[in-house]
Amino acid sequence: MSITDIILRTLAEHGRLAADRSLIDDHTDLYQAGLTSHASVNVMLALEGLFDIEFPDRMLRRGVFRSVSSIRQAIEELTAGAASPPQLTGELK
């Protein structure tokens, strides 16, 4: 499963978006799609668990979680340098 798919599934599970999942693409503004700051914390937590990463303080801002594309960039940055491509360490429901 690609990082994008994992992000989309995490958003579906924890993002409580008002917009239909099929309408979310790479650049959809997630806040306009109904992502609240509380829900974004749950999305972060789930992604931290799934990718075994920690979002540093500098990434804990609205811009980073504004779109699937910006979340993917953050995850790629945090997993860069790893010998193998990002591995899923957690369970997806």
Partner: peptide, 12 residues
Amino acid sequence: AKNASMLLVHKD
């Protein structure tokens, strides 16, 4: 409650 939620991901 907001702080509690943020502290779950914020690293001080």
